[in-house]
Design a binder for these strands. Structure first.
Length: 567
RNA sequence: UGCCCGAUGGUGUAAUGGUAGCACAACUGACUCUGAAUCAGUUUGUCUUGGUUCAAAUCCAGGUCGGGCAGCCA
């Protein structure tokens, strides 16, 4: 039972906020959601769901210079895809610009906020340092009437950006820098994606967030650890004029509250995964510099990228549950994510045969021109998935790596004189490896045992290996993209002075042309499939009959590759 | 030399004063028409020093180490 669950459970039991649980997921629409957001989403929506409460989706759009509608749309799509639905309409911080403004005037009236003419640089000087207290602004004691006049003129855009700010009057000597008369409004003559130019001042996060939470009746405001030090300011904002909130909740809230809501902020550690970057700024940089093909490049840790790669919402949710919720800055092994993925995919993915690096095999004792249809099981993990037919003929393709001319003792696959099973097919024995002038193997010649149709020998003899194959004449060409981790170091960007872009894996994408069985002709984009013995894949959004395109989601676990590399 | 927060196997977490458990990873072995899956097993841990207590991962104090904070970003 993680600490947030404990807190919420205790609050419900004690009837705090009338026993209501109401959370919110408040992304800033300045980029696409990533797996780190998935953790937050699972916690925010999960706690509400678990305790019979509600969860709002709120776009935290208080900075028009960074935010775009494209992101607003993608965020909604991603949250829904992950399997969550929010309470009522999507909320926007900008819905509350009016309330924030009214409250700011009330603070001015109460002598708790003032208009400051210090430049950014002067303000930095006055702020002091981590160890040195700050100094009061010379504008701190400006009369209320003057503050009000100036603030209203700021709102009208009368002053250039950066000339004046509205500051909370708290304590320049506070050991917590965020309490040293923080700026709560800045002038910004920018057009906002929703409010246009109705406002030429925008509230700061620390000021707006508690107001938004209170107006929405939020009870538990869950966020990441870096906001912990901001909590005293969050509480300060709510504490100043409680009567304001009692009124504002009636006016601005979609809820009818029986008692004024008093939100509390709780902080948990953000998600970090090995070989992954989780910074929207850095992900944007990859997109802008074309080091990836966009926000939904299947190598990206964005939800849209993972979706395109073939990850399922179920796998991501299971992962988030297993990662846990603590206040410790941990780094989760990427292998745990892959484990959750494979566990889900194993249950649901239909099996197919696809030869990624083909070499031709001629079954010398099989009649020319004859085509047999063999039954193949669609998913051994799910009998209800049924069977399909796979064509078999004299000429096949098998994986180049499934043949070795001079195999080590533990190699179970094809080799001269060695008998193996073709999955769902026949037992075949290799008789010859045909080479070109340069000595490269160009073709294998094998014989088959007609008595072993389906894969079992009537005489009960066993073979150690089973390999996948496709019939050459019926095989379809498919472009296959093999993805590997985007970065080659465990914690990209963690070393001072090293640009994270230089830590990228040059082999994160390999494109090849594979031979796949005909049943894949109409593979639907986004539906997970397993290519037997090689991995889970799904057709890309650009895939279509006649020009098949598959993304590798994740490989199958491969204990042979370990054994082979040891030998 | 400020303030806030944290520390349990390789990794992620549980145990809320009473037998340190689970998962991932790693390694054995069994089974197998995917060297997959499945099954069985093995290795590895309470940052440190004191204190309180019959009993401490847990409570207290000091230390060590790690993270966060000096945007008119969120």
């Amino acid at each position: 039972m993680h600490f947030i669950r404990q807190i919420v459970a205790a609050d419900v039991q004690q009837g705090r906020n009338g026993g209501r649980v109401h959370t919110r997921f408040p992304p800033e629409p300045n980029g696409y959601l990533h797996i780190g957001h998935a953790k937050a989403i699972c916690i925010d929506f999960g706690m509400a769901k678990e305790f019979g409460g509600l969860c709002n989706l709120r776009m935290d759009d208080t900075n028009p210079s960074k935010e775009e509608v494209e992101y607003v749309d993608s965020i909604q799509e991603d949250v829904r895809w992950l399997g969550f639905d929010w309470f009522g309409d999507v909320r926007y911080a900008s819905d509350y610009f009016g309330a924030c403004y009214e409250y700011a005037e009330a603070l001015i009236q109460a002598g708790k906020a003032f208009v400051c003419d210090l430049t950014a640089e002067q303000m930095r000087e006055h702020r002091g340092t981590l160890t040195v207290p700050g100094k009061d602004s010379p504008f701190r004691e400006r009369p209320v009437a003057e503050n009000l006049d100036l603030f209203r003129r700021m709102r009208a855009g009368e002053f250039a950006d950066g000339v004046r700010t509205l500051r909370a009057k708290i304590d320049m000597n506070s050991p917590n820098i965020h309490m040293r008369d923080p700026v709560i409004y800045r002038g910004l003559r920018a057009s906002h994606h929703r409010t246009g130019e109705a406002w030429l001042i925008y509230p700061m996060y620390d000021y707006a967030h508690p107001i938004e939470d209170a107006l929405e009746g939020i009870t538990h405001s869950l966020c990441t650890l870096e906001f912990e030090i901001h909590r005293p300011l969050y509480d300060w904002v709510l504490d100043q004029i409680p009567e304001f909130f009692a009124e504002a909740q009636k006016k601005w809230s979609a809820l009818t509250l029986t008692e004024p809501a008093r939100p509390r902020q709780y902080e948990f550690a953000r998600l970090a995964i090995t070989y992954t970057i989780m910074s929207k700024r850095k992900l944007l940089e990859l997109v802008k510099s074309n080091l990836v093909e966009g926000w939904d490049d299947p190598r990206m840790p964005t939800l849209s990228g993972m979706r395109r790669r073939g990850y399922t919402p179920e796998a991501i949710r299971a992962f988030c549950e297993k990662v846990g919720v603590t206040k410790y800055n941990s780094v989760t092994d990427f292998a745990l994510l892959e484990h959750c993925l494979r566990e889900d995919l194993n249950q649901r993915a239909l099996r197919y045969m696809a030869v990624l690096d083909p070499i031709k095999v001629v079954i010398t004792n099989y009649p020319e021109g004859q085509v047999d249809e063999l039954d193949a099981v669609n998913n051994p993990a799910d009998p209800a998935a049924g069977t399909r037919q796979v064509p078999f003929s004299r000429e096949l393709y098998v994986e180049r790596a499934d043949f070795m001319e001079n195999p080590p003792k533990k190699f179970f696959r094809l080799a001269p004189g060695r008998e193996v099973r073709l999955r769902w097919g026949y037992l075949i024995t290799c008789t010859e490896a045909v080479k070109d002038a340069a000595g490269n193997i160009t073709e294998l010649r094998c014989t088959y045992d007609p008595a072993t149709r389906g894969g079992n020998a009537p005489d009960g003899r066993k073979v150690q290996g089973t390999i996948h194959w496709v019939s050459a004449a019926q095989a379809l060409d498919a472009t296959v993209r093999l993805y590997d981790r985007l970065f080659r170091v465990e914690e990209p960007g963690a070393t001072d002075g090293v640009d994270f872009k230089t830590e990228m894996n040059p082999d994160s994408l390999k494109i090849l042309t594979a031979k796949v069985e005909p049943a894949l002709a109409n593979a639907k984009p986004g539906v997970p499939v397993q290519f037997e013995r090689t991995g889970y894949f799904c057709a890309d959004k650009a895939s279509a009959p006649g020009r098949l395109l598959f993304n590798r989601t994740v490989t199958l676990r491969d204990s042979w590759i370990k054994a082979a590399s040891k030998a």
